[in-house]
Amino acid sequence: MIRVQNVTKTFGDFAALHGIDLEIKPGEFVALLGPSGSGKTTLLRIIAGLEFQDGGEVLFDGEDVSSRSVGERQVGFVFQQYALFKHMTVAENVAFGLSVRRKGRPPKADIRARAEELLRLVQLDGLGKRYPGQLSGGQRQRVALARALAIEPRLLLLDEPFGALDAKVRKDLRRWLRGLHETMGLTSIFVTHDQEEALELADRIVVMDHGRIEQVGTPEQVYMEPASPFVSNFVGETNQLPGGIHVRPHDIDLVASGGIPVVVDNVFRRGGSWRVEGRIEGHDRVVEFDVNAASPAPTLGDTVRIQPLRERQFHKRRL
């Protein structure tokens, strides 16, 4: 069980975190989701012990680890650019954490065996003698993961784990990491700015903005019941209708009468639907919505009537 209690952090004049409270249950896979500058990476680094909070506590299984160094916390950290040791082979990278142990260092042969086992786990068996520079981005990522796992961490932390990869590799690796988490059951926290990644991978999502937690919930909750306009905007697409109403493009239906009149500006195909862009009559406000592609595409310049199926209304934020 990981607990973050009222953690604050400032860099000079910039307040990176304002009193963060968070609980993570054993075996959970949690995403810290937010735009850049939201404080998500700072929070991850504070949990790891790579950064120090100005106030508040971080508890691992009830024990305050605030005064423990990163080495003592026994966390596996996967860096955004992987931070592989360029001059060491892949196997040496993976073995590093074990070979620098001062007490209880396993014999050389055991370290080697453990490194090989981990490389098998991340499907890189046979590449142990290569150097990081000779690997693809996806392979490097997995070396970084194997290296972090070698110290048998109580907690796995990943900073934008797929940020440096291209789209295809990213997708494959995502699925693979999800599977790995399911088999290992290791408590894991990852940072991402990509909502799709968070929705697909995480058991729970922590949405952050400006150093505050906006919402914590399952992907379903965060998507379907956003707690704030920010979450509604940041996770999934959203239209803002007059009266503080937020509605997703796929939650809009065309109706014959009533509803809101919209002038169609642009129509294009997106997967199995037509994506329609239009303006609410009498407003400048742009709305986007999806129409089943089985029906004919709305004509440009026509006025159609739309009806939100599911909407959320946000009142002025209490601050």
């Binding site: 012990g49 080495g71 040791f85 954490g97 142990r101 290296r147």
Partner: peptide
């Protein structure tokens, strides 16, 4: 300092 931080997080001492 990523590589140094990685080493420290893997339990290495400053000198190591």
């Amino acid at each position: 300092k990523d590589e140094e931080e990685a080493a420290i997080s893997l339990g290495a001492t400053g000198w190591q």
